[in-house]
Simulated scan of single mutants.
Amino acid sequence: MTAFEIAIQDPTGIAVAVAVRPDRVELAGALSTGGVTPSPALTESAAATGVPVHALIRPREGGFGYDDAERDLVVADARHAIRLGAAGVVIGGLTADGAVDAALVERVRDVVGDHEITFHRAFDQMADRRAALDVLVGLGVTRVLTSGGAGRAIDATDELRALVAHADGRIQIMAGAGVTSQNVAELAATGVDAVHASAKRTVVEQLTVSLGSGAPAGESGYATADEAEARAIRAALAGASS
């Protein structure tokens, strides 16, 4: 059966993971920006549930070309996440010419030991994804999270099949971006090893004054995990494998 990873960012998401029991959790903060490193307390709380937690280690929003200080922070946060009980880390970085930042991955491997490493959607920013897969295999990365280079994974099923074929069991391919209970079976049919979904709902609130460019005054909201959608994704995957 295709594995199910749920992306969560708050205590509600942790509760949904406990109820639904996905194969693993990607834990992050600020998922609306693509995610950043979660707080230590959130990481520790999620790890205590017994659901394998893979902590996103991303020092800021934006692109994936990091300076030395940001790389140092990635390495330190990866070390700390493992100490807090994470089963693995989710990282990524690009060189100035848009290739895998192999030196960063090697440094993270040194501090996480045998724990799993997922290379995140920095992968989708690269022009030659097959060459990148070969590099990541050589670095001992466990899996790659990818939309196949599209805005939504469901729009790149041919590319996902091609990546699965190129990986040839050497590294796991996990489809993510816009994964829902309505399209997850079609994605599983590409042969990917796993799917990654936030299974989210939006909570609407009112802000009296603006809190910043991303949170203007007036009707606002935030996303959190939805148990019903998470269960529907899991059920669709089970049906696809039967």
Rank of each mutant, 00 (worst) to 15 (best):
G29L: 04
V36L: 09
T37M: 07
T37K: 03
P38Q: 01
P38A: 02
P38I: 01
P38G: 04
S39F: 06
P40D: 12
A41H: 04
L42Q: 02
A46W: 02
A46R: 00
A48Q: 13
I57R: 01
R60W: 07
F64W: 07
F64V: 07
D67F: 13
D68Q: 14
D68S: 11
A69W: 11
A69G: 05
E70S: 10
E70V: 10
L73S: 10
V74M: 15
V75M: 06
A76W: 13
R79M: 11
R79C: 13
H80W: 03
H80K: 14
H80A: 15
L84E: 09
L84N: 07
L84P: 08
G85D: 05
G85M: 08
V89P: 04
V90T: 09
I91P: 01
I91W: 10
L94F: 08
T95F: 08
A96I: 00
A96T: 07
G98F: 14
A99E: 14
V100K: 00
D101S: 06
A102I: 03
A102W: 01
A103Y: 01
L104T: 02
E106G: 15
V108P: 00
R109E: 09
D110Y: 08
D110C: 03
G113R: 08
G113L: 09
D114V: 08
H115V: 02
E116L: 11
E116W: 04
I117N: 05
T118K: 08
T118D: 12
H120G: 05
D124K: 02
D124T: 06
Q125K: 10
D128Y: 09
R129Q: 15
R129T: 12
A131H: 12
D134S: 12
V135W: 12
L136D: 08
L136V: 01
V137Y: 10
G138R: 02
G140F: 11
G140I: 10
V144E: 02
T146R: 05
G149H: 06
A150L: 10
A150C: 05
G151R: 09
G151Q: 07
R152K: 13
I154S: 09
D155N: 12
T157R: 15
E159Q: 14
R161F: 15
R161H: 08
L163T: 00
A165N: 05
A165H: 11
